[in-house]
Design a protein around this nucleic acid. Sequence first.
DNA 1: TGACTTATATGCGCCTCAAAAATAAGTAAA
DNA 2: TTTACTTATTTTTGAGGCGCATATAAGTCA
Lengths: 240, 240
Amino acid sequence: MADIDILAGEDPDAYARLSVCVDIVLMGVRKGAPCALLLRRGAAPFAGHAALPGGFVGAREALEDAARRVLRDKAGLLDVRCEQLYTFGEVARDPRRRIVTVAWLALLAPAAIEAALEANPELLCATLAVPEGDCSGDSAVLDPTGARLPLAFDHEQILTLALERLRGKLDYTAVGFDLLPPFFTLRQLQDVHEAIRGSALNKPAFRRRMIDKGWITPTGTRETRTSHRPAELYRFRGMT
Amino acid sequence: MADIDILAGEDPDAYARLSVCVDIVLMGVRKGAPCALLLRRGAAPFAGHAALPGGFVGAREALEDAARRVLRDKAGLLDVRCEQLYTFGEVARDPRRRIVTVAWLALLAPAAIEAALEANPELLCATLAVPEGDCSGDSAVLDPTGARLPLAFDHEQILTLALERLRGKLDYTAVGFDLLPPFFTLRQLQDVHEAIRGSALNKPAFRRRMIDKGWITPTGTRETRTSHRPAELYRFRGMT
DNA sequence: TGACTTATATGCGCCTCAAAAATAAGTAAA
DNA sequence: TTTACTTATTTTTGAGGCGCATATAAGTCA
């Protein structure tokens, strides 16, 4: 913290106070592709563009509490895994005035996506189209009709970073399970991984890796209503 | 960003403005152990405790620019790799008033450590003692005499996170090279890795791994002034 | 010159893991 | 009832990475 000599005795109000807000990337996997929940802006600047749900941080509110408040008020979600992503503070990122934003990444299971869309009809579920083969380039943000969706402020940069973070953590953390229902087949788990990575995986190898990690346990029950051999349902057990 | 409806038309000053500052973890490896450069606080709160160098973010200053300014003003350093670490915003983290801090991690080669200590004699080089064997526990911060050094605010938490981040990136990024002089032996590189990890590595395997990665090239020159066979000097070539 | 120290190169066995092939369990159609 | 079809699951095989041990090289110092 801080300029020690100065902080000690002088008037706190002599220093700049900035607006601080939180923006939440509500991310999930739907129809085999990563997606994010956005709001369409009505007023300038960036009227008509899509933006991440967000809100100002209160004077007596912790950053994480602000993120949870936005999650609750804008999407009706209470128990969602939410981690800090990055803090964006370019001077001109908002043309009106200086705003520093702390971006958070929330991971949504399919049921949570639908619940949020129902809780707030203003939300739209945008698809993040990963460029085929090349996963370094920026991902295109598409609206439900498949049209390119322009984003407000630096929110496209934030979305890109969110997807990169998710991709990076996929192999050595349990993030994949937050994007699935409590019971799932290995095929569903693989689909989620492939959607985030943007590339295919070898099936037997994926299966063995997942089982050997010890994070999942078979439930003994099987899929129903398939027109082929039903797959075993697994459940996330937790990391050691 | 932001509560769209509200942001659009109302008075910006109706919302909380917070003090925002940057704190820099100046990290390096010295005498086979990770270390960080700290300042001793003179005034309350936490008088006599050590603290990270930091400063307030100006109203028209980007976060990264603020970090570079602190790096320059407090340690005389100009060309240092510096990445954002995490943003801390607990309400009571500073007992005087609400301050949100964006923590940054700067990686220092041995020469940069010495240069900083000379540029600002107030700086002290604290050793981060990784608990033997168990790298999950918090690392103790020791002053040059080996005594435990109490830290101000939540700065111990920030230091611990910095070391964890460094450890996590060690294997798949080039962070190790930022902690070494431009020319180095494989033994020096291994010492840095072992210091960050807090555990020993197998020598031939480490050597093979590093060479196979293709990140380093032999320079053809050798160590001098050794009392044994001199080692080849390598140099970082960059990642592909 | 020979002892000593550390760097460097090589060989071996184990474990991980990707890819392919083989087998199992359902549905749908003949 | 049988056969074709689809997808799940298991087994096999081979390549590569890595830890460990050993052998050799290149300096200093007594």
